[in-house]
Design a binder for these strands. Structure first.
Length: 471
RNA sequence: UCCUCAGUAGCUCAAUGGCAGAGCAUCCGGCUGUUAACCGGAGGGUUGUAGGUUCGAGUCCUACCUGAGGAGCCA
């Protein structure tokens, strides 16, 4: 353990000995100095009445003359510690008094339940016996994020520090639970994770702007979807998914946009549009219910209405594009048949239901070139968008893929795409073409909806947006 | 790219065209159960930048910079 550059390192003989025992596992570690286990704050309930060591950062501190309440944060939770002047040496009391916000430290003391009539995070507190500081944050350059209000610009500039705060911590733990549930859902159903490339030679969908990068002597583009490659891997593995970062160079400046975001995309051989609509509703239900079950404390910390999430279950309402247009017009929208929905339209639709609504069979002209036409009405595409409730809008887009070589060639021509870039993709229609379908879900939009956030910028550790590349 | 709004202490914000202020943070002092602790005191400013109007500009005008919200487009 090295002290940070320029930081003060306080180490008495006893302290040094205890600091040598760096924990490798969360529970049951003993530091070299004795039998005292190093315990993460989340596990403290199991150590009631025992002496333990805890390590972390100072979240806040309050004092009252001869009693000091340092609040410790270790990533697993918050712990109120108590330093009574008469229970510790004068040196320990002075060190506790001098602590500054986000200083790193190690505390030793006895775990006990919070007394009747008092409250503290976690319900347990630590009666401190000894204290060692790794680094004292200098008082003349204090931690910039205080417990009071801050503006968005300031907090985004301090994003590397902001993620230590309890609200951001809750959001990112829910993000992790969502990612875990996504993988579990597909893994449990026999899907194979087959990753798709991030450097790509050409446009995927042609409609949106791509980030261009130098690739030795040629140009490459950052992927905007793994879908075309998913179609190749589906022909090899049957049921596949890819999960990784996606890049869109759109100059979009709204609460729903990032230039770099994470997308999970399943693709299923021999599946139809109806099959993936069922898959999508089961998928979303599984994610939401996993979060409700495993991250209830974090949802409550965010003041999310958990009841609204508990209601998420199949079947989701299904709305044909035709019906959606009529519906929107009756709610005052000026949308006309043949055009795509605006953000306001999605909000109008999604606010009418208490669970995600699936809008299917859009006009082919507003969708990507690879969509399979509806055999009953060829002007429609066999596609679906899933709109999250409470006005959150589109979180999933997908559908059935065109399987005819002739049709794809025609579409590529119509869209003005360079056919030589798609020769490998067209091979999939030459060598055992097959009906297949899939969808993509934007992780950040799902996190924003499940957490009940105003903006997707809080759903990813380091957001990349139109006007933000740092930190 | 377009539209709207904003920029004053480290942070969040006040200040009729007339002495640039408060809360938090920091420093000093007080308090043995605090809960964004509280009480008393201190330090802290090129009012985003450059021009202009005026006896006088944080305030009005012009341009630019930075950010926020939205549109288009999208997950």
């Amino acid at each position: 353990m090295e002290p940070a550059a320029g930081g003060r390192f306080e180490a008495g003989a006893r302290t040094f000995r205890s600091l040598r025992g760096v924990p490798g596992r969360a529970r049951g570690n003993e530091n070299a100095g004795g039998m005292m286990p190093v315990v993460p704050i989340s596990d403290l309930a199991a150590y009631d009445g025992q002496e333990v060591t805890v390590r972390g950062w100072l979240y806040n501190i309050r004092s009252s003359g001869k009693i000091i309440f340092p609040i410790l944060r270790d990533g697993s939770g918050l712990l109120q510690c108590i330093v009574f002047k008469n229970n510790v040496t004068p040196e320990v009391f002075e060190k506790a008094k001098a602590l500054t916000q986000e200083s790193s430290l190690e505390l030793q003391g006895m775990v006990r339940k919070v007394p009747e009539g008092k409250t503290a995070p976690g319900g347990y507190e630590l009666d401190v016996k000894d204290l060692a500081v790794f680094q004292l944050v200098p008082a003349d350059q204090p931690f910039p994020i205080t417990p009071k209000d801050h503006g968005v610009e300031f907090l985004m500039d301090q994003r590397h520090l902001w993620i230590r705060s309890s609200r951001q911590h809750a959001i990112l733990k829910i993000r992790h639970e969502i990612v875990r549930a996504v993988r579990q859902f597909f893994d449990d159903r026999g899907f194979v994770l087959v990753d798709t490339p991030i450097f790509t030679p050409a446009v995927c969908e042609g409609t949106t702007t791509l980030f261009e990068v130098g690739y030795f002597d040629e140009k490459a583009y950052l992927t905007q979807s793994g879908q075309l490659y998913n179609e190749a891997t589906a022909a090899a593995f049957g049921k596949v998914y890819c999960f990784g970062p996606t890049f869109r160079a759109e100059k979009s400046k709204t609460r729903r946009h990032l230039t770099e975001f994470w997308m999970v995309e399943p693709e299923v051989a021999f599946a139809t549009l109806d099959d993936v609509m069922v898959l999508a509703e089961e998928f979303i239900t599984s994610i939401v219910q996993n979060v409700v079950k495993n991250r209830r404390a974090e949802l409550l910390a965010l003041e999310r209405d958990v009841q609204k999430l508990e209601r998420i279950a199949p079947p989701f309402p299904r709305l044909a594009y035709d019906e959606a247009v009529t519906n929107l017009q009756s709610h005052g929208s000026e949308i006309r048949w043949g055009s795509d929905f605006g953000g306001g339209d999605e909000t109008i639709l999604s606010q009418q239901f208490d669970r995600p609504v699936m809008v299917h069979r859009y006009p082919a002209q507003v969708k990507a070139f690879y969509m399979e036409p509806d055999p009953a009405r060829p002007e429609l595409a066999l596609c679906v968008d899933v709109l999250a409730p409470e006005g959150y809008g589109e979180i999933i887009g997908g559908g059935q893929r065109a399987s005819s070589l002739e049709l794809l060639n025609e579409r590529i021509r119509q869209h003005g795409l360079p056919s030589e870039a798609f020769d490998w993709y067209l091979d999939l229609r030459k060598y055992g073409t097959f009906p297949h379908a899939g969808f993509g879900m934007g992780i950040e939009r799902a996190v924003a909806w499940i957490c009940g956030l105003e903006h997707v910028r809080e759903t990813i550790p380091f957001p990349r947006m139109l006007y933000r590349l740092k930190p």
